[in-house]
Amino acid sequence: MQVIELDAASGGAFAWCEGELGSERRRERLNILWLGDVVPGEWVYAVLGQARERLTPERAEEIRRALEGVQAALAGETQLDGYFPDLTSTTVR
């Protein structure tokens, strides 16, 4: 998800972030303490309401496609190669 703005009232603990997967676009208030701090425009990996990893925009896009591929596979789709163009050697950290 992309950091849109810090939640000033939270004193640096939360930030409003947006992301999309398939046709679904979501805005979520993420706890950012795992990362210490974030700045608007930055991309983060979000899990259970927490921002857990900083991402480059390219890596964020790669992950978005891969997750759409997993979602498609779980929905029964079999033609998946387009979803996984080139996962590079780094995994989410």
């Binding site: 990996y45 779980l74 995994t91």
Partner: peptide, 26 residues
């Protein structure tokens, strides 16, 4: 059902997908 999503994939790619799906302990 992760196996369904991973079956048939190149092994090197599959091991990169798994931490994306279960990212809390990435």
């Amino acid at each position: 059902n992760v196996a369904r999503a991973l079956r048939g994939k190149p092994a090197a790619q599959a091991v990169q997908l798994v931490p994306l799906i279960f990212a809390l302990c990435g």
